[in-house]
Design a binder for these strands. Structure first.
Length: 200
DNA sequence: AATGATAACAACCGCCTGTGT
DNA sequence: TACACAGGCGGTTGTTATCAT
């Protein structure tokens, strides 16, 4: 030994005992300072690993199981808006984690390419100039989410500044497409078979 | 019943960013 | 200002479960 010992962190699936330790530690000390959690809890896990386990699996209020049609619709629409901004999308799906949404998307949509997406995200103007990237406004997202609002669960965490004024007509055009998507979500076959096409 | 394909989920890795010193 | 570190995020991989043949 040269005195420099490299900490061997445990990897792989979490055990019930580890979950219990982590839960108890977070209950007492709160979230955050994950390196401290890793050390103070007695878990031989990295702070990152502890955070991931807590956020994606142990945190109270998480939903498990299949996505509802409403949730599917939200995922589709917000993904069309923001792309792979999973954590951002997750803010609008209470109880769902970015990891879960990411997995869901990958499982259900990876093989599909959106017919409309290119048109929505980068429509061409008459003189063939590409419009600027979407800057999502609070009002626009509110409109977008209306079909899915059921109760206060979907109280939004709007932090974005107002969009550029000259984007409003562009965004309203985009929203029209999203309404079409939302309606189609009710009928999976029409969604999978019509809105998306399977790539080779 | 056996086997291969696919779906679903959990977890790790690497990069980026924010913050403290 | 520069650097180190912790935390967050997105991409990816590995494992298990389920379904079809």
């Amino acid at each position: 030994m040269d005195g420099k010992e490299v900490q061997e962190w445990r990897k792989g699936p979490w055990t019930v005992e580890e979950d219990k330790l982590l839960c108890e530690y977070v209950k007492v000390h709160g979230e955050g300072r994950w390196t401290s959690v890793a050390i103070g809890s007695g878990l031989n896990r990295t702070g990152k690993s502890c955070r991931l386990r807590w956020v994606n699996y142990l945190r109270p209020g998480l939903k498990r199981g299949h996505f509802t049609p409403q949730e599917e619709g939200i995922v589709i629409e917000l993904h069309a808006l923001w792309g792979n901004k999973w954590s951002t999308i997750a803010r609008y799906l209470p109880g769902r984690t970015d990891n879960e949404i990411k997995n869901y998307w990958r499982t259900h949509f990876k093989k599909m390419k959106p017919k409309r997406k290119a048109e929505i995200i980068a429509p061409k103007t008459d003189n063939n100039k590409t419009l600027p990237p979407i800057t999502t406004s609070e009002e626009h997202v509110k409109e977008l989410m209306k079909p899915y609002e059921r109760d206060n669960d979907l109280a939004m965490l709007f932090t974005e500044p107002a969009a550029m004024e000259d984007e409003q007509s562009y965004l309203s055009m985009v929203y029209q497409d999203f309404v079409i998507v939302a309606d189609a979500v009710e009928e999976e076959e029409s969604l999978w078979g019509g809105l998306w096409e399977v790539s080779e």
